[in-house]
C-alpha cells in the first residue's frame, strides 16, 4: 500500500508540469513582461540582488523562530505517533513562503539553509539541523526545478508537498525503524505526513499572498 502511494505522485508529477510549459501564460500573466525578462533563469548567486538575499535571511530567521519550538516539541513527542510527524509540514513553511513571495530560483533552498544555520545554537541537534532543513527545502524547490523556474502555479507547491509527504516516511523508515511497527501505524504515518505537508503548504501560500497584498517582497528589485 505504502509503496503504491509513493510511486504515484512521484514519477507522474513531472509529466503534467512539463505539459504546462507552453501554456504557462495564464499563470504568468500577472507578471509584466519586462519583469520576466529581467529575471535570471537559473541564477548564479552573483545575480541575486542583495535585497533578495536579505529578504531570504529575514524569512529564514522567521522560520527558525517557528522551527525552534517545533523542533523540541517533535523531539519530545517522537514517542507518540503522528503528533511528531504532524509537525513535519512546518519544515516546508519558510521555503514555501519564500518561493511564493519572491518567485525566484533557489530561494527556497537558501531560506532552508539560513533557517538551519540560525537553529544550530537552539535546536539541540547542532549542525544536523542545517541538513534537515536543506532536505525539506529541497522538496519545495523540486517541482520548479522540473520547469526550470519558469512557471509558478500554486499547484506546483502542493506537488512538492505530496512528494515529500511520501518520501519522508520512506526515508525515515530506517530512522524510526518503521518496519518494526504495525501496518496501520505505518499507513497512518504516511497519511499524517502528507496531510501535514499539504496543510503547511497551503498556509505558506496564504501567508505569502497576504504579504504581497501588504506590498512587501513582491517589489524586490530585479536582477
Amino acid at each position: 500500500m505504502s509503496g503504491a502511494d509513493a510511486a504515484s505522485p512521484g514519477p507522474s508529477a513531472p509529466a503534467p508540469e512539463a505539459a504546462f510549459l507552453p501554456g504557462a501564460g495564464s499563470e504568468e500573466h500577472p507578471e509584466p513582461a519586462a519583469e520576466m525578462r529581467n529575471r535570471p533563469r537559473i541564477a548564479g548567486t552573483g545575480r541575486f540582488p542583495t535585497a533578495v538575499l536579505l529578504t531570504c535571511a529575514a524569512l529564514g530567521v522567521a522560520g527558525a523562530i517557528l522551527l525552534g519550538p517545533a523542533n523540541w516539541l517533535s523531539t519530545l513527542l517522537a514517542g507518540v505517533p503522528f503528533l511528531s510527524t504532524g509537525f513535519a509540514g512546518l519544515w516546508l513553511l519558510p521555503s514555501v513562503i519564500a518561493l511564493r513571495l519572491l518567485r525566484r530560483p533557489l530561494v527556497g533552498l537558501l531560506v532552508g539553509l539560513l533557517a538551519g544555520l540560525v537553529l544550530v545554537p537552539f535546536s539541540g541537534y547542532g549542525f544536523a539541523s542545517v541538513l534537515t532543513n536543506l532536505w525539506w527545502a529541497a522538496f519545495t524547490e523540486l517541482p520548479f526545478l522540473f520547469v526550470l523556474w519558469r512557471y509558478w502555479g500554486a499547484w506546483m507547491h502542493y506537488a512538492g508537498a505530496v512528494i515529500v509527504g511520501v518520501v519522508y516516511p520512506i526515508s525515515a523508515w530506517a530512522w524510526f525503524d518503521l518496519g518494526a511497527f504495525g501496518l496501520w501505524y505505518q499507513g497512518a504515518f504516511f497519511a499524517v505526513t502528507i496531510a501535514s505537508c499539504v496543510v503547511a503548504t497551503a498556509l505558506g501560500i496564504l501567508i505569502a499572498d497576504r504579504l504581497r497584498r501588504a506590498g512587501v517582497g513582491g517589489r524586490a528589485p530585479r536582477g
Binding site: A51, T55, A57, A58, A62, I207, A220
Partner: peptide, 20 residues
C-alpha cells in the same frame, strides 16, 4: 505573522540598500 514578516522584510530591504 503578517505584520511581523512584513516588518522584517522591509527592514531587510533597507539593510540591503545600506550594504550595497
Amino acid at each position: 505573522i503578517v505584520p511581523l514578516l512584513a516588518g522584517a522584510i522591509r527592514h531587510a530591504e533597507r539593510v540591503a540598500l545600506a550594504m550595497d
